[in-house]
Nucleic acid binder design. Structure first.
Lengths: 188, 188
DNA sequence: ACATAAAGAAACAGATTTGTTTACCTTATT
DNA sequence: AATAAGGTAAACAAATCTGTTTCTTTATGT
């Protein structure tokens, strides 16, 4: 059981490929060849491709949010600084060499059905991110912290898509500028 | 030649299905059955599925921007009002019964290759939208109109994704509030 | 070293994909 | 009415997709 388990490695590979090429466009065969894992082993761990997608999204949700929060708290010391550090972390993310937008936004684009588990986990991810920002806003003694969280999260979404589609390397800074105004007004 | 040409009808159907179900998930057979057009006819008009996708995006680009600009100018009378009307138009769009996010954002999620024509047209669409907003900002005598256009476009992207993924019906209003601040500061 | 469990390789099945081709039908125009 | 264009329907091809199965190899624990 030690060693990077086949299961984990499959999920890792799935995240990489689904991010870059999308969900439908990434075939099982290709994924398995990339991971160097046999089909039998995969179907032993996951009942279907959709289950693998789901597991990949779960893992990504956990890892991404953890790293994101750590990075934010590394940059920002005061709660107010942390709120703005969100966009510094975003900037690093966007201008890295393997940025293909948000896995969850992309997932919703391919799986729009209302009751899909993929839909649900994507929505949930955004809710958890909102919860984190809301917590930071509370810590910063923002009276209307919910409204500020709404605004900052929307700015983050906007910067992600702007970086992805328009490929504007300034996306994070544009958002940060508006975030500064939002925080300033929320604290006034 | 029947009145609504087969070509136009195919494009119309393509837009509807690609919007709702995505690009890879929408098979040619299904599209043709929905449109009530034979396969032969389709391949007479479009050399491949990708060409049909491209034509659909072209058509959508034209129709969407035209309708969008008309709607904005219907609501806002002064240039400054028009800048904010963007988000009223967005609100109507989001809360309509067939909103599945932005076709171009979704397209990039499925076709991330750098040199793809699908990528190019999506990027171009955003550029044209930016150009429109930039023009409005100029008309409103905003000194740094480019920066304001950057901000308002990012807010629009953010509201689209927030409405699509988080399904927050307030998305447009949250963005509008920040847009008001942005315009106010740009005019100060 | 041996027994047992796990993984790989590859064939296979069945559905579905894009795209081509063949044969027939409908309809406008001359 | 004959012709020609443009349409449908359906069979077909070849590739690819998800998922199953079989047989073999490789590790691991005792």
């Amino acid at each position: 059981m030690p060693r990077p388990s086949r299961r984990d490695h499959l999920i890792e590979t799935a995240i990489t490929l689904f991010c870059e090429h999308g969900y439908h466009a990434t075939g099982i065969d290709r994924l398995l060849a990339t991971a160097g894992v046999s089909k039998k082993t995969m179907y032993q761990h996951f009942r279907s491709k959709e289950e693998l997608i789901y597991a990949a999204l779960q893992q990504y949700d956990s890892v991404f949010r953890n790293n994101f929060m750590k990075a934010v708290e590394d940059i920002g010391k005061t709660p107010e600084e942390k709120l703005l550090a969100i966009f510094d972390v975003a900037e690093t993310w966007f201008n890295g060499n393997k940025f293909f937008g948000c896995m969850f936004i992309n997932a919703i684009g391919e799986y729009s059905e209302q009751e899909s588990p993929i839909r649900d986990i994507s929505k949930q991810f955004k809710k958890l991110m909102w919860g984190y920002v809301n917590g930071l806003a509370k810590d910063a003694c923002v009276k209307n912290h919910k409204a500020l969280a709404d605004e900052l999260c929307l700015l983050l979404e906007g910067s992600i898509v702007t970086a992805q589609v328009s490929q504007n390397p300034q996306a994070a800074f544009i958002a940060k500028k508006m975030a500064q105004r939002a925080v300033q007004e929320a604290l006034a």
